[in-house]
Design a protein around this nucleic acid. Sequence first.
DNA 1: TAGAAATGTTTAG
DNA 2: TAAACCTTTCTAT
Length: 263
Amino acid sequence: MPEGNEIHRWAEMHAGMFAGRKVRVDSPQGRFTDAAALDGRVLKGVRAVGKHLGYDFGRTGIVHVHMGLYGDFSEGRQPMPEPRGALRMRLWDKRHWLELRGPTDCSLWSEEEWQTLLARLGPDPLNGDEPAKMIERIGKRRTAIGALLMDQSIVSGLGNIYRAELLFRAGVSPFRAGAEVEAKKLEGIWKDACALMPDGMVDRRIVTTRPKDRPHGKGEAMDEEVHYVYRRTGRPCLLCGKKVETQVMAGRNLFWCPGCQAE
DNA sequence: TAGAAATGTTTAG
DNA sequence: TAAACCTTTCTAT
């Protein structure tokens, strides 16, 4: 499900619910084998970098959570619902509960392991980082910019929706080599990400269209167009009317407008 | 009921 | 480059 914006949102929300509190932890599904070691301990805080979350239990360690494609949280006020489906981890206290399903990873890490993770990630637009390293790394590569934006060691937190939509908004073809994209353009893409990502969600969907570009005025279709190109294959571009195209790049479906993003 | 797809990453070949 | 892995949800038969 998530790209970096939702990861950071979860970190803030879960810290608000549980930071500084003694929490209960279990794993109804049984696959999070370190749950018992954390049960009854104090959650000190929740970290977020790129698409990674870290639930900090101090000397006991850090629960590293990576959502992969399908991972999802649900949370709420007590009473906690009965376990349903494949429930990897639950965390709760007297007031709140949260459930984690389907993550690629949910395991207890040391501080050292967390630092190793930080070392291999590129700058994160949601962590107040500077774009210099991203621009430098992209400038050295012949690889297509559409693939480079998905590489977490170049820039962290972007996923398939943001790669398509940021490139569209910048008017850059995803097929252009990294080295052929001007540094000014890259800086603009970074700034756009910093502006878009913090409050990029409506109804659990990422929204990247500017209000003036959304068709409106008639009935239900209002506000339906939340993306310019993502998953709009064969439909007319909201700006130029040409048909949106799709092709697999970096193992994922890439979407672009051949008019607005000419090579 | 089966199958495909989904905002992702790692490992193998 | 391809396959494997995690799980739910929506569509087609």
